[in-house]
Design a protein around this nucleic acid. Structure first.
Length: 886
RNA sequence: GGGCGAUUAGCUCAGCUGGUAGAGCACUUGCUCGACAAGCAAGGGGUCACUGGUUCAAGUCCAGUAUCGCCCACCA
């Protein structure tokens, strides 16, 4: 599979050229569709974005995460399915189209219901679904043949059927209650769609005279305009202050209506004056109180929040204007006792931010408690698991205190409620009932009333489809914690209710992205970078990788565009490493090399061992949803171990010296070095593919490979034979020596290009090892010549360092800066001294010696002797330098 | 009013099962040695918010305090 592919990897890496190539190729090859085989499925679905939506950085994080898991699972051999789709998003979409109409000087009422709906569908046709196109850019491996929309005919049927079933079961009812009303969207909302904002308001104390008496009662209110709808005053039954007034009537100021004074437990005697005005039609509590005492329910506003005919002189005023006027009138008439500043939570419409008005109206509700019980049980018994786990508590708390769900919306865009009326008759059915004179309920259903069916409705429920049998329940849900109530909890409830199973086993909550100031990224704040622009500038791979790399589990992320360089540079690094390997591979078919033909050197054994560790760690971290850890592991393995050390060590093995006639040993060694370099790179590409699908595929295709595409290649396995603690220890020693030499060179200002003589001292084992490693060490540290002081002699004048007891000398009489070297030694020794003191202290502690684990004590003892030895050697180095001066 | 999270290098953050702190960026010094200057090498920089406790040993476990943030909540 090489769509329009150049022969060699070009420099520099250009994500735009490479990324555009692969998505269509994968799709055409059917990579994104589950196979027909009987493999174990792995299923995810998109949290359906609004048709009005466009990609945000938040989506990008979700997609990166979802696709990461999906691609990994695909490589693990699972039959993966990712169902994409969209949500009709009732209010949001209707708002957008209404706004457009308004700009054209029209309103939905001009068009009528059908005309308006045609307008919305047309809008959707033209502008909707942008986000799904953008998903391709990210690389999301979605199965587009299964794309769903919540207003698809089949999906709609499922929604209406669910309504009918719940109605038949007695779990849906119609009632007249005080609900959250948005005067701008002109519809009822659920409790979850209301955002409470702490607001500094006032508490007005208003005196209500008592009828036929000189007495009066003072009530406190935050919403004086609702007093016009007062039909009672309530006090606590045990409140002695007011006991004598209970049973008499108050006279409502301004309108002089007589309203009863009642006793009710709901009243908190300690708040305000202990007397509450009761407005049953405009407050949910008052509504309950009113019902208990048979108080009239008087509505004083219209659906737009404008005072209505029951508001006497204030009729026609907007509710906030009415508030000002009423306060004024009360003050003028001497009824206003006092005003106190008061902070309280004011509900706002989550869609348009308008202040919510509690409003008495006929609505449809779902009785939630019976649905919540099994959903709670499922979480408690671990049938649904949350990552991070702490969300379980949030979920449980919400379900335990769940309230009935208001599902009717006074909108047109959505699933129209399948209820028909004729006189007093009510029918619930998907089709219009037979006979004349039936009219359908005008309202539509809450968008979430369709979304909660998503995991099974997308698979064809209620039909018993093949997809449903095969891909339900889903495996994983990746989403934001902000919709845990709206969506996640409800899906669990619906899943259990309608399919008898939880809809997914695991829920992974992504981080919330914030800007540099810590504010949530949002459209209205305009603080979210444009994801498409980010991908243009850094590449989709880079954005995917960086977001994953940066995002610790369950923590918010302060996002700064500059961070995307991490991923961009990493992609470039991998790209260049691949170029190096490709250039040096020769024409040998490495995939045909048998491992028995290999002669692994220490460096080879080391990098294979490191690879095995990396594979093991990455796999484990993916399994436990520790994605940033997994990304970190690959990053450091690829960059710091493979590129910085292994490739550097291998370079000398795959080029021959000038005029050299390669022996068969050299040929075998070269083949081994090439094979290992390729094999490890191949492992890196496989591990990295779920994070950076495009660049890894491009490279993989340019290198020897088996199979058509990396996307379906096998996830690497950590071979037991590769784990090699000896090689790791020995290479660590080598690295120590090389770093020491480099350090001495740098400290003594020796030009990097200049070769330096180095003398190494140590015990026999160390010298044997160093001899073996010499061909690696020499080029890495630019040494000429390297002397192993088997005779034990030490240079007279030298810069020196100690590595695991072995001594490294740069015998550079006349070249080294003696003063600088002395200072360096003093610094070094001071540090050792303090380490030594800490270790000694520990080992003097009897408790430590007797109570700590043996291996810990041993390690301390070893540390002590090593520190002492090192210090001793440095001291001798110091002495010999002193001798030079003398 | 409840619940949750955070507090570690100048900045943004890692640190999973307790054993004397890591990354990236930024900073300093030096590098056109044919993969990579989107790079290489070397280096400086931290009383891990505070106070107690458990432990031989605490950034890591427990309790409390402070500050910041988020979610939930019908005191009008």
């Amino acid at each position: 599979m090489r769509p329009g592919h150049p022969e060699a990897l070009q420099q520099p890496y250009d994500p735009r050229r490479v990324e555009s190539r692969w998505y269509d190729a994968w799709e055409a090859a059917g990579v994104f569709r589950p196979g027909e085989g009987g493999g174990r499925p792995f299923v995810v679905s998109i949290p359906p974005p609004n048709v009005t939506g466009s990609l945000t950085m938040g989506h990008l994080l979700g997609e990166s995460t979802r696709d990461l898991v999906l691609r990994w699972q695909r490589m693990e051999g699972r039959e993966t399915l990712y169902v994409p789709g969209q949500d009709h998003a009732g209010i949001a979409t209707q708002n957008v189209v209404e706004k457009k109409l308004r700009e054209e000087g029209r309103s939905r009422h001009d068009l009528g219901r059908d005309g308006f709906l045609a307008e919305v569908w047309a809008w959707r046709e033209q502008y909707g679904g942008l986000i799904l196109k953008q998903l391709r850019r990210v690389g999301a491996s979605a199965d587009w043949s299964r794309e769903r929309f919540t207003l698809d005919p089949a999906y709609s049927r499922a929604v209406l059927l669910v309504f009918q079933r719940l109605y038949d079961k007695g779990l849906i009812y119609r009632g007249r209650y005080v609900v959250n009303w948005c005067p701008r969207c002109h519809t009822a909302l659920s409790d979850e769609e209301v955002e409470h904002v702490e607001t500094e308001g006032s508490l007005w104390y208003v005196r209500y005279p008592v009828k036929d008496s000189n007495d009066s009662v003072v009530v406190a209110t935050t919403r004086p305009e609702t007093m016009l709808g007062d039909t009672g005053v309530a006090v606590h039954p045990k409140d002695r202050r007011y006991a004598k007034l209970v049973g008499s009537s108050a006279v409502l100021p301004l309108v002089r209506r007589e309203i009863p004074i009642v006793a009710d437990d709901m009243v908190d005697p300690k708040f305000g004056t202990g007397a509450v005005k009761v407005t049953p039609a405009h407050d949910p509590n008052d509504f309950q109180t009113g019902r208990r005492h048979g108080l009239p329910e008087l509505i004083v506003m219209d659906p737009h929040g404008v005072m209505n005919e029951n508001a006497s002189d204030f009729r026609g005023l907007d509710r906030f204007e009415a508030r000002r006027r009423i306060v004024e009138a009360l003050r003028d008439a001497g009824y206003l006792e006092k005003v106190e500043p008061h902070t309280h939570a004011v509900g706002h419409c989550s869609r348009c931010d308008t202040v919510i008005e509690p409003y008495l109206s006929w609505q449809w509700f779902v009785k939630m408690a019976p649905l919540a019980a099994p959903a709670l049980e499922a979480a408690r018994r671990g049938k649904v698991k949350f990552f991070p786990a702490r969300w379980k508590k949030v979920y449980v708390n919400w379900l335990e205190g769940i309230r009935d769900w208001c599902i009717s919306r006074q909108l047109w865009w959505g699933h129209r409620i399948p209820v028909w009326y004729r006189g007093d008759e009510v029918r619930v059915s998907l089709e219009p009932p037979a006979g004349e004179g039936w009219t359908q309920d005008e309202d539509v259903l809450d968008t979430w009333f369709s979304s909660w069916l998503w995991p099974f409705a997308i698979l064809g429920w209620p039909e018993d489809t093949e997809d449903l049998k095969r891909f339900y329940p889903n495996s994983l849900m990746v989403t934001g914690s902000d919709i845990i109530f709206f969506w996640v909890a409800r899906m669990v409830m619906a899943g259990i209710e309608f399919t008898g199973q939880v809809p997914f086993q695991h829920v992974y909550f992504t981080s919330i992205l914030r800007d540099a100031q810590g504010r949530k990224m949002s459209k209205s704040l305009g603080n979210s970078p444009d994801p498409i622009e980010m991908m243009d500038r850094y590449g989709a791979d880079a954005v995917r990788f960086t977001l994953t790399y940066l995002t610790p589990v369950g923590q918010d992320l302060l996002f700064d565009e500059k961070r995307l360089e991490t991923g961009k540079f990493f992609a470039n690094k991998i790209w260049n490493a691949a170029r190096l390997v490709q250039m040096r591979l020769g024409d040998e078919d490495l995939s045909a090399v048998r491992e028995s033909q290999l002669r692994l050197t220490l460096a080879d054994r080391w990098i294979l061992s490191r690879l095995a560790h990396a594979i093991k760690d990455v796999t484990r971290n993916l399994k436990t949803y520790r994605f940033s850890e997994a990304a970190n592991t690959i990053y450091h393995f690829a960059w710091n171990e493979y590129c910085d050390w292994y490739l550097e060590m291998a370079k000398s093995r795959w080029t021959e010296a000038e005029g050299e006639l390669p022996s068969s040993d050299r040929i075998a060694d070269r083949r081994t070095a090439r094979w290992v370099a390729w094999k490890v790179l191949d492992g890196i590409l496989r591990m990295l593919h779920p994070f950076m699908p495009f660049v890894t595929e491009e490279i993989w295709q340019a290198l020897p490979h088996d199979g058509d595409t990396l996307a379906t290649a096998a996830w690497p396995k950590a071979r037991k034979a590769w784990f090699d603690p000896d090689a790791e220890r020995e290479v660590a020693f080598l690295q120590g020596v090389v770093v020491a030499v480099r350090n001495l060179r740098a400290e003594n200002n020796i030009a990097p290009g200049r070769k330096v003589p180095v003398v190494l001292r140590g015990d026999v084992a160390q010298l044997d090892l160093l001899e073996q490693l010499a061909p690696q060490i020499v080029p890495l540290a630019r040494i000429e010549p390297l002397t192993l002081a088997r005779d034990g002699g030490r240079p007279r004048v030298a810069a020196s360092a100690v590595v695991e007891g072995a001594e490294v000398f740069l015998p550079l009489e006349g070249l080294i800066d003696l003063d600088a070297e002395r200072e360096r030694l003093v610094r070094e020794m001071a540090k050792l001294d303090s380490d030594l003191e800490a270790t000694r202290k520990k080992l003097r502690n009897q408790d430590f010696l007797t109570k700590a684990r043996v291996d810990v004590v041993d390690r301390e003892k070893q540390r002590l002797s090593q520190l002492e030895e090192t210090l001793d050697k440095l001291r001798r180095a110091q002495e010999s330098l002193r001798a030079v001066e003398a």
